[in-house]
Amino acid sequence: MLLIPCPWCGPRDEVEFAYGGEAHIARPADPDALDDAAWAEYLFMRANPKGTMRERWMHAAGCRRWFNLLRNTATHRIVAAYKIAEPPPADTE
């Protein structure tokens, strides 16, 4: 069970949150210019790292806002939470 530090509401139980997968996947600026391989890369290919991961969460049973989390997928240790528009903090592990 994770204790997730929502940047707006503070630390809350994992059951209050919805998961949004890998963060910082930018929507293509010019979709018409993409070929099939580039679409596949954008839609499907994921880093799936073992270690620190930047991921999206939504505080569904709280402020209902999206934010990003820096979390270790091998240990579940949460390194930092940061707001959507903010750059990811450095990995302090």
Binding site: L2, E14, N48, M53, E55, A74, T75
Partner: peptide, 9 residues
């Protein structure tokens, strides 16, 4: 959530 830890919530 994504994990490699062989345990869940």
């Amino acid at each position: 959530f994504a994990s490699y830890a062989q345990r869940g919530s």
